[in-house]
Design a protein around this nucleic acid. Structure first.
Lengths: 163, 163
DNA sequence: AATTTATGTCAATAAAGCTGACATATCCTC
DNA sequence: GAGGATATGTCAGCTTTATTGACATAAATT
């Protein structure tokens, strides 16, 4: 099935010229963004490795700390992953004592999620090297540029998501 | 009230206060970066899905188009993955006619990698929505801010990598 | 009482990475 | 030319993180 997905069989000519920026395509920023993110997540990755956790755990710990009392459904919506993917990491985090579930006070079907003290500490420990990296990247930047970077990052998000 | 401190004693208390920015931790940018990257890669993901390719194929196609004639070793170094991980996706891209291998003119052990015409077209098609997204995110930004964003992204990378 | 909703769980699958071992062709050095 | 180093390819097996589909349970809603 994946054998002949290409255009034609045989021997198409290889192209020797590099693909350069054009009016419409800005490869430079595409690459900068790729490398920046790769290194940005490498800091917490290294810390998490010691606990046997991964990137998924990081995201859950982060958002639960930022929005204590959020439900499982809220989290699924934020992370854009499936219930089953979340279930595994959430269970591990609860079993390890980083996150607690509390039945919703009004709707008792809901499981509201809260960090424990050590969950808060973990989130801070993971954010610290990332913040240092960000501060380093901002060195010498004017207030206008700092605001411009935030506006740029906001502008990179999808506009109207079905929520 | 159902606080649920029931069966197991020694369960840590859940924290109800949101984790806020501090002097040292800038959660806002951490989140902005996460969401920006999540949506940034969603564009090519949607295109690749149709061909049965994934993100790994995208990276290979991109870098081979940017640096035609790069060797397998160069690519491994850029992507920071292992030979075996690369082998699978590279084989698929070659079989599908997007990339060609040519024995090195001086060192014939080397396999120099080149895009085919359709490989070039694929790379452009994948970059196009990303570039449009970047352009949209830059709307109304001054030249200074644009340069500042690039400088920021460069600053986010690791400094001394063993290359 | 019946339906919907929020969550949990089971089973099977896939993509993309990993390690370790080994094969082949080629280059380099003695 | 022999022997070792290098660039690449390949095999076997494993892990993480995601996926879909099906079904269970408790609680809310109609």
């Amino acid at each position: 099935m994946s054998r002949q997905t290409g255009p034609k069989a045989g021997k198409p000519e290889p192209l020797a010229t590099p693909m350069e920026d054009t009016d419409i395509i800005d490869f430079e920023i595409i690459e900068l963004f790729f490398f920046a993110y790769r290194d940005f997540v490498s800091d917490p990755d290294a810390i998490l490795e010691k606990s046997g956790f991964g990137r998924a755990h990081h995201r859950v710990v982060h958002f639960v700390n930022r929005n204590p009392g959020m439900t499982v459904a809220d989290l699924l919506d934020t992370l854009k992953i499936t219930k089953q993917s979340l279930a595994r990491v959430l269970k591990q985090l609860i079993d390890s004592g980083y996150i607690r579930q509390v039945a919703g006070p009004e709707d008792r079907r809901q499981r509201k999620l809260y960090p424990t003290k050590s969950g808060r500490e973990l989130a801070l420990a993971l954010a610290e090297p990332q913040s240092r990296r960000i501060e380093r990247a901002f060195e010498g930047a004017s207030a206008e540029v700092r605001e411009g970077v935030k506006a740029f990052l906001r502008g990179m998000r999808d506009r109207q998501r079905a929520e």
